[in-house]
Design a protein around this nucleic acid. Structure first.
Length: 478
RNA sequence: CGGGAUGUAGCGCAGUUUGGUAGCGCAUCUGGUUUGGGACCAGAGGGCCGCAGGUUCAAAUCCUGUCAUCCCGACCA
């Protein structure tokens, strides 16, 4: 961004120090405050309001696809967690345990849920008896705890809010369809509401979920060129069903195991929004998830008629938009900066000169464009501007991703690109774990996913030269 | 978990080298003047100097321990 567009001095420029920029934005936009417990944060009203918008859109999409919300306990008895071997091994290192209740030592330790597969499985074993009970399409909104060693607001915290969908189906085919359906729900949501383009693909065995047969992911690219896993959808096959004995009597009278899925997104999506759209003046929110879509800033509000007109405008606009009238006694410049830090998509300026001219000024947060609108036709202009901004933000994010997506045909190329740039690197892979590990060690890259949209860059593995199995997106990840 | 940095008013920091009883800017409160990109003047309030020990007549300052935060790495669906 050009220097003369930098209005907010409290925020470190992203070119200077991206990590500092991120924490500055998170705090100046009043999204969170640190708490007394390591890795845990207070989500403040404005931050929570964004999460509520995200939640509302996703919840609607889940319900449209036939899912029901439930709530599971937050404690998991150790014996229950132990039932699926890969699962417990995957999560054991980051589980928090409750060993005492009141003054009594517990007979059996209770794990604070890091994810609820085991609870859902246990419940499904109890309630699923017949093919008539299937499918079960459950979702829960809750928080989970993972004892992380390094934490960052929204991106990785010890406790975080999320949703986890858990479904049980009669057949593998149905379960596979569900896995893809929900991955698409996530991807659509990212494109339509978050204005974030994502790569849909499958995780390698190394990166897949503990206990899953297949893990699918949507990967997005942040402004600094690092990748962020933004949502996952897992196909479990009947592995959990066998471990938890979830069987149903089918039409043919045979007892059969169910096939399951799980899928989740978390408050990490907020981190993605910040790092995909934010700029040196702070947060930039896509209109579809902005708690305040438009702020009205009266200029010289003490002068006769200004506040009156501003109020009229507010009353009109609030029927259609989430709008705020900032009639506090701060100076206009202060209000401009404040709402820019918070990423409010559109600011409307209304002052004596405007009223005289029968107009108002609309200022877009994303590109600082100022639009003059007829004072009797503001709703129309606002609607148009918000829609345009939502679309432009997605376009810009796509362009940025394209500018940070590279292709490597050889290991030398891969290393060279990784050394000089952050971003997605597309390269062919043979499917062997050894090559994946070698690429991590030598180039510092992890496999982000094997995209559904496969290309054949070369026919040999970038690492070992053997026959290539798939195109992989590689990158440095959060 | 390893390496580095930092904890002093709500926020950002100075003061620590050389020990002497805590200061600046912003924010807050009061009054006045202002208002098209973080206004100005005057006055006021606000501190277990992260926490616990120790050395000393005396500790924000020196020593030991501990906790937290940030950065880099390892780890991480």
């Amino acid at each position: 961004m050009a220097k003369d567009n930098k209005f907010v001095k409290d925020i470190t420029s992203m070119d200077v120090d991206f990590a500092k920029w991120y924490t500055d934005v998170v705090r100046k936009a009043e999204l969170i405050e640190y708490s007394n417990v390591k890795g845990c944060m207070v989500i403040r009203p404005y931050g929570f309001a964004i999460w509520e918008k995200i939640k509302a859109s996703l919840d609607r999409r889940f319900k449209e696809t036939g899912h029901e919300n439930v709530y599971m306990p937050m404690f998991i008895p150790e014996s229950l967690l132990q039932k699926e071997k890969d699962h417990v091994e995957g999560f054991a290192p980051e589980v928090a345990w409750v060993t005492q209740g009141g003054n009594e030592k517990l007979q059996e330790r209770l794990c604070v849920r890091p994810t609820s597969e085991t609870l859902f499985c246990d419940h499904y074993a109890n309630i699923i008896h017949s093919y008539r009970d299937l499918p079960k399409l459950y979702n829960q909104w809750c928080s989970v705890v993972r004892w992380e060693k390094t934490t960052r607001p929204f991106l990785r915290s010890s406790e975080f809010l999320w949703q986890e969908g858990h479904t049980a189906h009669a057949t593998a085919e149905e379960a596979r369809e569900e896995t893809q359906r929900m991955l698409n729900v996530y991807a659509d949501f990212c494109y339509e509401d978050l204005a974030i383009p994502v790569i849909k693909g499958q995780k390698t065995d190394k990166e897949k979920f503990a206990g899953a047969e297949e893990t699918y992911t949507i990967e997005s690219l942040m402004h600094d060129g690092k990748a962020l896993q933004s949502g996952t959808s897992h196909y479990f096959g009947d592995g959990f069903a066998k471990a938890f004995d979830i069987q149903y009597a089918d039409k043919d009278g045979q007892l059969k195991y169910v096939h399951q899925t799980s899928w989740g997104v978390s408050t990490r999506l907020l981190g993605a929004v910040i790092m995909v759209h934010g700029d040196d003046n702070g947060l930039v929110l896509p209109p579809n998830i902005a708690p305040i879509q438009c702020v009205i800033v009266p200029i010289a509000q003490h002068k006769e008629g200004v506040l009156e007109k501003a109020n009229e405008l507010y009353e009109t606009l609030k029927k259609e938009f989430s709008v705020k009238l900032d009639d506090s006694d701060k100076s206009p410049g202060w209000k401009f900066s404040e709402h820019e830090m918070k990423g409010v998509p559109v600011r409307i300026e209304i002052g004596p000169k405007d009223i005289e001219a029968g107009q108002v000024i609309l200022a877009r947060r994303d590109n600082h464009e100022k639009i003059t609108a007829d004072i009797n036709n503001v709703a129309e202009a606002l609607k148009e501007t918000l829609a345009k901004m939502q679309a432009d933000m997605l376009e810009r994010a796509k362009e940025n991703r394209a500018a940070h997506t590279f292709v490597a045909k050889t290991m030398d190329e891969l290393k060279e690109i990784a050394d000089s740039n952050n971003g997605f690197i597309k390269a062919m892979w043979c499917g062997d774990l050894e090559c994946e590990e070698k690429i991590k060690e030598e180039a510092g890259l992890t496999s982000r996913c094997m995209p559904f949209e496969q290309e054949e860059i070369t026919d040999t593995c970038v690492c070992c030269g053997k026959k290539a199995k798939a195109l992989v997106y590689w990158g440095k990840a959060y």
